[in-house]
């Protein structure tokens, strides 16, 4: 059973930019895309060990919507968390978090 935690108003998010949220002590990176979807992945960058994924640049690679680590440029699929470019290291995927927007409020599932 998914437990939904209300996090913030949708209006608090900027399109194509991430924010960090604290959900039960876990740092989640939330991204509002230009099509209105909100996606959530772990904020912890497994390559550098720093909590910075939310500060990466959002983009597309082919059909996939991606975020690039601001630390060493690894790239992940924002929908699946799959590591698409490990920048020369062994790929490590990101945990993904379910996100729902209800009545203008963003909820993160856990």
């Amino acid at each position: 059973m998914t437990r939904w935690t209300p996090v913030c108003e949708l209006a608090a998010l900027d399109p194509e930019r991430g924010v960090a949220a604290l959900v039960d002590g876990v740092q989640v990176a939330l991204f509002l895309l230009d099509d209105g979807r909100v996606l959530g992945v772990a904020n912890h960058d497994p390559f550098s060990g720093a909590n910075v994924v939310s500060r990466g640049i959002v983009g597309t690679h082919g059909e996939r919507t991606t975020v690039t680590s601001p630390m060493h440029k690894q790239v992940w699929d924002l929908v699946t968390g799959e590591c698409l470019d490990a920048a020369g290291k062994d790929p490590v995927d990101l945990a993904v978090f379910a996100v729902e927007v209800r009545d203008g409020t963003v909820h993160v599932g856990s």
Partner: peptide, 12 residues
């Protein structure tokens, strides 16, 4: 044609 929404290279 399939430019999408850019990336960490072209955006900066």
């Amino acid at each position: 044609a399939e430019a999408g929404r850019g990336c960490d290279i072209c955006k900066p």
